[in-house]
Design a protein around this nucleic acid. Sequence first.
DNA 1: CCATTTTATCGTTTATCGACGATAAACGGT
DNA 2: ACCGTTTATCGTCGATAAACGATAAAATGG
Lengths: 106, 106
Amino acid sequence: MHHDDQLAELSKALAHPARLRIVRLLQATPGCIGGDIVGAVGLAQSTVSEHLRILKAAGIISGEIDGPRVCYALNPDALAPLAEFIASLTALPGDVCCVPTRKETP
Amino acid sequence: MHHDDQLAELSKALAHPARLRIVRLLQATPGCIGGDIVGAVGLAQSTVSEHLRILKAAGIISGEIDGPRVCYALNPDALAPLAEFIASLTALPGDVCCVPTRKETP
DNA sequence: CCATTTTATCGTTTATCGACGATAAACGGT
DNA sequence: ACCGTTTATCGTCGATAAACGATAAAATGG
């Protein structure tokens, strides 16, 4: 897989308010919250399950089976490539562009 | 707009290899590259134009009209919220979860 | 061993995305 | 004033994503 494809995968996994919500929840909750996630995001159980699957596929979270329920935990390291990419952009000032400038595109 | 919505917008704008490619190009090129972007990404001109539009809508790039062509420049600051969000996740170690662990979900 | 609880999967529907070609719009140069 | 160049927009198509309800699977507790 190309490098940009991996970054695109990570970005896509974060590109949904419900999934960001889930990530925040997992970050805020020290222990394990089971299906409390479903109640918190306000979507159907099956929909939340799908969002969890997407996050897990991207490596952003991991799930451990704990009896009948599943305990999800955050994997902040998975986002390191994305963080590095963004940091690399801020590194050098991508300053001036060509000629004197005319007007802004609408 | 909710905070998560803004982050989702930014993530979505990055969630495509072609757009990441464009961002890299703009970062690497000190001056202005015009429609060289089209040749570099290997997609149709209209498709590239659409990707540029999406990146501009997210504030990640800006376009200045320079005669018949448009000069695009990178806006690394636009990604600061996303960078901060990711950094905040790595901050506290989101470590152990509930009970001893049984097995990994397939 | 059965009932309950919790999560995952399936099937469907609707909306959004990504790509393209064709066309329009804006501008510089001859 | 036209002509070539460059970019944006439009319309369309197939593919993917998002949401839901219904159903199945797994494991605990009675």
